[in-house]
Design a protein around this nucleic acid. Structure first.
Length: 398
DNA sequence: AACTGCGGGTACA
DNA sequence: TGTACCCGCAGTT
């Protein structure tokens, strides 16, 4: 359970307990704090909080947003600025209707590497949406340890969707590693994969086995152990392989302009669903028009979804556009797809939700995505034996 | 390998 | 002077 000073409170409906009569730059900060705030993972706008110096998340200066260290030449005040969010340049939608909002790597080198990878959902180039929420500059967070308290202050309003949180990203990567390990160890699974139509052409294990991890941080490990069900963010295509391909875009052009920073116009975003317009960052003005045209053409492309099965997905359907992209070839071989399976899937989902509805998932509010649940027993079996989810859960995760 | 914090340096208003 | 950004280094995860 999330208890004590390190509890993560849902951001909404939260009122700071500690007043606002101080500024992070004050020479003296209040030490007569009657009650500390519970940790806020998704701070936005101009907020101030006072955490206990024992609060682990605060000690680590954690944030749901991807914040990188910024030198403010003040050793007493740690300053971090927001990196934004990595999105699919194709603006694709996963099977559950969610968008790709990846967490930018904090390290510059790692971030460049990250952007060279394709979208885990449709393999289109990834795009970094810069944060411009603080007067055109990234939103900044300030941390200052003073006495028995950790003072936090944020400046600016994020003008982009939320990325997956650090804890979610860690969980996903951890499971990918475990899944890869399992697949290498299990001859039966290997055979299964080899017999699947997509064997060898899917972009990566990481891209197509995103799921929650049994190696979550200690905090969440205990959460899971104490829970009747497992919360997880639904945007990670849990064990399923939605796949949208559209061949109408000129991939050379995409590659040429790949990495160009885009941003949304401010204001029109929410948790998980962003409705703003994309525009190029001003400092990329030299390519702005072309890039915008590419993005617009990508977004305007109409897809003709078909259903298919992907490597390792078992009976999990994915959606793919009927395009001329080389990736489509296996799809066409499997065009006999399976609306009845999809119907079965919907039926399973309905039964599942009836059985494990919201009331059974009290912890779900600790995640900032829409969540679903599986039983701990099913989760354990899935982790131990990938064939379990293939053979026993017509669609294990939604 | 990637994250984190620190600090030198530079640019700009 | 304050703010922002780039870069490298070193310790940690």
């Amino acid at each position: 359970m999330l208890k004590g000073a390190d509890e993560i409170a849902p951001h909404r409906d939260f009122t700071p307990l500690t007043g606002m009569s101080w500024d992070i730059n004050d020479i003296n900060l209040p030490q007569d704090v009657k009650q500390t705030d519970s940790f806020q993972e998704w701070t936005d706008s101009y907020e101030k909080y006072i955490y206990s110096s024992n609060a682990k998340h605060a000690q680590r200066h954690l944030s749901g947003w991807a914040m990188r260290n910024t030198n403010n030449h003040n050793a007493r005040i740690l300053k971090k600025s927001c990196l934004g969010v990595v999105v699919c340049s194709n603006d694709c939608t996963t099977m559950d209707g969610s968008k790709i909002h990846l967490r930018p790597a904090i390290c510059d080198k790692a971030r460049q590497k990250q952007q060279k990878k394709g979208c885990p959902n449709c393999h289109a180039p990834l795009t970094l949406l810069c944060c411009r929420g603080h007067g055109g500059y990234p939103v900044t967070n300030f941390w200052r340890h003073e006495g028995s308290y950790i003072f936090f202050q944020s400046k600016g309003l994020h003008d982009h969707p939320k990325p997956e949180s650090k804890l979610e990203a860690e969980a996903r990567k951890s499971v990918c590693r475990k899944r890869t390990s399992i697949s290498l160890k299990s001859p039966s699974l290997k055979r299964t994969q080899e017999s699947e139509p997509f064997a060898g052409i899917m972009p990566s294990q990481e891209a197509f086995y995103p799921a929650i991890s049994p190696h979550l941080g200690d905090h969440f490990q205990k959460e899971i152990a104490d829970s009747l069900c497992i919360p997880y963010p639904s945007g990670f295509n849990f064990g399923k392989t939605p796949y949208t391909v559209d061949g109408s875009a000129d991939m050379d052009d995409i590659g040429r302009y790949y990495g160009r920073c885009l941003q949304y116009t401010a204001g029109n975003y929410g948790s998980g669903n962003f409705t703003g317009n994309m525009k190029t960052c001003d400092y990329n003005y030299e390519y702005g028009d072309n890039w915008s045209r590419i993005i617009n053409s990508l977004n305007a492309c109409t897809s003709k979804p078909i259903l298919g099965y992907a490597q390792g997905s078992g009976s999990y359907p994915y959606e793919a556009a009927a395009s001329q992209n080389f990736l489509d070839t296996p799809l066409q071989n499997n065009y006999t797809m399976v609306s009845e399976k999809r119907a079965a899937l919907a039926g399973f989902k309905q039964d599942f939700e009836q059985k494990w509805g919201e009331d059974s998932c009290e912890k779900k509010q600790t995640w900032n995505c829409k969540n679903s649940c599986i039983t701990a027993a099913e989760f354990a079996l899935c982790q131990e034996d990938p064939c379990f989810e293939k053979n026993n859960l017509s669609h294990p995760f939604f």
